[in-house]
Design a protein around this nucleic acid. Structure first.
Lengths: 195, 195
DNA sequence: TTCTCCATGTAAGTAGTTACATGATTGG
DNA sequence: CCAATCATGTAACTACTTACATGGAGAA
């Protein structure tokens, strides 16, 4: 049996993937994630640095000290074993559950408890949030398009997904506003877990 | 100052909201969440029961023992203070960050590391997942429509959002398949965190 | 009788965030 | 010289899941 067979968690693979894409230090990984992957995954230094240590220990990445003047700096590169491990993880056929946790949608679900004005304000806030997110995503589109021109269309694909599904949420908000007004003669507060 | 002013976490408000909607026991809350809210929030018994205890302590709900034969059962109702607390939380104007954590999109983001066949398989898996989710959501649509007819359109609204945004992801998969084929002459593995 | 559902609860573990500590470098 | 940024790291905390323990009721 060759090498340690520690099983890595999602954060470790994320770090490994970012190293492969060219992020060199922990700091760069944080920056890169914040400016691209952020929309469907986040990571904090408290996860990055232990992950880098672990990946180094199992020889999936290799680090060396590259200080800028007296400011210390560890840079890493992915090893052949690292590339293989990343590919294996990516190609794994196990179904990946889709998990969205969004308090705004929870609130909207319960919005029957609010009076019309507050309910519409909430709907508005949800719509505005998606509008803002679409704008943010559009702003980083040029970078993703440049990457596609270099032969990697996947960052653009994931970016597009972010855009289209926020656009879809936004459209749903617009579409429902009149329907909420339509039923607003209701006696507020009818129970109904099992309709 | 009247009553305890414990600040509740999201799970506690979720439990409170479900009690208001007519779920009576911890068990019923679990069932109700699993069949409606599940698509944007989940909860486990290990969160529900402590939340029920807390909400009772601060008098936002009231419980009584209602055994079925010898099978014990605590049922709860929301108090006026509970309704007020729920409304206050729902109406709160604080911006709610949208946080999606989806490993499938992370994998897709990194899919450049895969050969064409595996990358397309991954794209396919993502598409199938959204198709399955749309089907699941369509299946519970009648219940949400019934609830709308009773004067509460919000469960249907949130359900529609789930449908449209999975539909949007699905469309993006379809749209990108040819584009991935188009760039597949690429020399795999070009780095590019900062393009 | 045995399986599934109803029903309540907890202990232990995992994952992740926040807040902090430390210190160098660059640009205004 | 001061603020922002580069850069690494940890301790404590919060949130959530998994696995388990317990046991009654109804149906096949």
């Amino acid at each position: 049996m060759s090498g340690e067979r520690a099983k890595l968690d999602a954060s470790a693979y994320l770090v490994l993937g970012m190293i492969r894409m060219g992020a060199r230090s922990g700091y760069e990984i944080k920056r890169a994630v914040d400016s691209s992957l952020r929309f469907f995954w986040t990571i904090s230094p408290a996860q990055i640095y232990p992950a880098l240590a672990l990946l180094t220990r199992v020889r999936l990445i290799e680090g060396k000290s590259e200080p800028t003047g007296k400011r210390r700096r560890q840079t890493f590169v992915i090893t052949p074993a690292g590339k293989a491990a990343l590919r294996k993880w990516l190609a794994q056929q196990a179904p990946i559950p889709f998990e969205l946790r969004d308090l705004a949608l929870v609130k909207l679900f319960f919005a029957d408890a609010l009076d019309l004005e507050d309910a519409l304000a909430l709907l508005n806030a949800v719509r505005k949030r998606s509008e803002a997110r679409v704008a943010e995503l559009r702003a980083i589109e040029p970078a993703a398009e440049a990457r596609e021109r270099k032969g990697d269309p996947f960052p653009l694909l994931t970016l597009q997904m972010g855009i289209v599904f926020h656009q879809a949420m936004l459209d749903a908000c617009l579409q429902f506003e009149p329907r909420i007004l339509a039923v607003s003669k209701r006696p507020a507060g009818t129970p109904g877990v099992d309709p």
